[in-house]
Amino acid sequence: MNALEIKNFSKSYNESIAVNHINLTVPKGEFFGLLGHNGAGKTTTIHCITGISTFTEGSIHVMGKDVQKDYQETRALIGLSPQEFNADIFASIEVTMDFVGGYFGMKKKDRTKRIQELLEMMDLTDHCKKPFQALSGGLKRRAILARALMHDPEVLILDEPTAGIDVEQRRALWKELQNLHKAGKTIILTSHYLEEVEHLCSRVAIMHNGSVLKELEKKDFKQNGSLEETYLTLTGSAL
């Protein structure tokens, strides 16, 4: 089964085309990378998959369900860790996770148990009572990821999950993501750190100006020496 199936999908903002007739398929259980420069259309695509944005052209299916017609079912299957910190800055991460668990229909007992599991997994237990605004950048990233995992989603979408965090924390986060992948989660990752994508993903799609330029298997990542060289050559940005 495909975790994600995008067919002929386009999205425009007024007269500006953000995504132009793209097709993408991500099989269940894959660790998939979505690459592209700023404004390539990655976040717009993610917003349309998750329900943050609407679209009128093409179709997007998650686990065989249409994200617009069956929106409640598909949203229950997805966990999103967005590029921007969009949590209530005055609430603690514990409170935020409790609300989010509630939005996904989790009962109080299950929420409490899951919050403890995730706080330990993300090493956030000592910070769980602090307001979100009092956390460091790295802790905020982990808190946002913990929030995305609250309802134990089948598909995890991570939009720049390691932006602004130090190398030690990045490596620790990679390990957690690999564990989640081994546990059967489908992970869709966007990142500007190409070594991160190279390390974690088994397949990537390169987006450029709203279109998918090319899809690459792991064995093809280094066709020009490294994924970075391959990426720069394909996007015409090589020096």
Binding site: G51, Q72, P82, Y103
Partner: peptide, 9 residues
């Protein structure tokens, strides 16, 4: 923060 509810069921 509205994204929390928009991405939920």
């Amino acid at each position: 923060v509205i994204h929390e509810t928009l991405t939920s069921p």
